[in-house]
């Protein structure tokens, strides 16, 4: 290379002109942007909160399997239990990449209210309380996961934090699928005005604690700081 007297092996095919391979680093259709709202430390904090909450969720789903008499729901809880364990694992693997070499140090709840939320969500145990169990997971917690993950994905740097985005995309697919499963199970269980009341009052009770918590990662889970204009 660099030799002006090229051998026949390096010559372009007869009659052809060698085309340049120099291109812009980003193709015209690649509109990813560099700026992001989160520093490494802030990303790690959020990821730690995600992991803690996903763990609490898969533990709850696993524990409830033995407590629900409805066979189809029992089996769905088993499948969903693994989905959330896998999410926790993805976040556990991400933490060291975010300079947290002891992942358990950041595997914490966002605040005390989230701890109270989990306690309230996992309180129902009796076999006749399937509606309450499902409402807590599928009408309160998973919608909060979907919103927190969506906010994170849409506001982090598409270039520097691509690994987090990739995980979130996989996770969100599960969250949407599980939410749909859960909502359909609930709709099949809620068949009387009394059931509606039960579901709504339990949802309101849990939502109140979640609002106090500010979401999965605390206040700012989906933005909401004054600079956002909300």
């Amino acid at each position: 290379m660099g030799d002006t007297t090229t051998t026949s092996d390096d010559e372009a095919p007869s009659g052809a002109t060698a085309a340049s391979t120099a291109r812009a680093p980003f193709a015209p259709w690649d509109r990813r942007d560099l700026p992001g709202m989160f520093s490494v430390a802030e990303t790690a904090r959020r990821v730690g909160n995600y992991k803690w909450t996903e763990m609490k969720l898969f533990e709850a789903l696993g524990g409830w399997i033995a407590t629900v008499p409805e066979l189809d729901i029992k089996m769905r809880l088993g499948a969903h239990c693994y989905h959330h364990a896998w999410h926790a694992d993805l976040w556990n693997q991400r933490l060291p990449e975010l300079r947290e070499m002891k992942p358990e140090r950041l595997t914490v709840p966002a605040n005390d209210a989230i701890v109270r939320f989990i306690a309230a969500m996992t309180e129902p145990e009796a076999p006749e309380l399937t509606i309450e169990k499902l409402v807590g997971v599928y009408r309160v917690l998973i919608p909060r996961f979907i919103s927190a993950y969506t906010y994170h994905r849409n506001n982090t740097s598409e270039i520097t934090d691509a690994p987090t985005i990739r995980s979130i995309n996989f996770i969100l697919q599960d969250e949407f699928d599980d939410w749909r499963d859960g909502e359909m199970m609930l709709q099949s269980l809620i068949t009387t005005p009394e059931d509606v009341q039960r579901a709504a009052s339990h949802q309101a009770k849990l939502e109140t604690i979640m609002v106090e918590a500010g979401g999965i990662t605390g206040p700012g889970s989906i933005g909401g700081s004054s600079s956002d204009g909300f």
């Binding site: 898969f58 088993g78 694992d89």
Partner: peptide, 22 residues
Amino acid sequence: FELKLDMARQAWDEARHVEISA
């Protein structure tokens, strides 16, 4: 932690086995 993850995975496997058996 990894053992908990394995147990969750096993829960999914067993759920499929219930489906298959049914």
